[in-house]
């Protein structure tokens, strides 16, 4: 029984990821327009998103065997790339002291949204 339960957890978690990435991206765009560097709260948001992506990785490892044939190289290639993009952008935004720190976070956020969509497509 528990694998099916985990799969529905997975669907809910994808929606959470969409919401978190969307909020972070919009917030970053607003901060870029307002000409602010990335503050502690925004960087914390980026760290939280990174954490959520890692949780997604763990959930998908846990449920991977119980699902239909998904190419592991394709799926984990995407999720690890998404984690790397978010980690690098977060570090970049921390080091950058101008409005372009949030700007880079916004660009990374858009990339990660597309990747979450691709991950969802691949999974189904």
């Amino acid at each position: 029984m528990w694998p099916t339960k985990l799969v529905s957890v997975f669907t809910v978690f994808t929606i959470v990821l969409y919401a978190a990435t969307g909020i972070l991206t919009l917030w970053s765009i607003v901060e870029t327009i307002r000409n602010r560097p990335a503050g502690k709260a925004l960087l914390g948001g980026a760290a939280l998103l990174l954490l959520l992506l890692i949780v997604q990785l763990i959930i998908s490892i846990a449920t991977f065997g119980s699902t239909h044939d998904v190419d592991p190289l394709l799926y984990f290639g995407y999720i690890i790339t998404a984690i790397m993009v978010m980690a690098l952008a977060g570090f970049w935004a921390f080091a950058e002291l101008s409005r372009w720190g949030p700007g880079v976070l916004a660009a990374a956020g858009l990339t990660v949204i597309v990747m979450i969509e691709r991950l969802d497509q691949i999974w189904q």
Binding site: L74, G77, Y78, V85, W92, E96, R99, W100, V104, A108
Partner: peptide
């Protein structure tokens, strides 16, 4: 400059995702 670093970062993100995709396509 800030915009220059932002451009470099976007190029970096694109390089990373293009490399990951091309790597998969070449292998599989």
């Amino acid at each position: 400059t800030g915009p220059g670093r932002a451009l470099t970062a976007v190029y970096g993100v694109f390089a990373l995702s293009a490399t990951a995709r091309a790597g998969y396509q070449l292998i599989r």
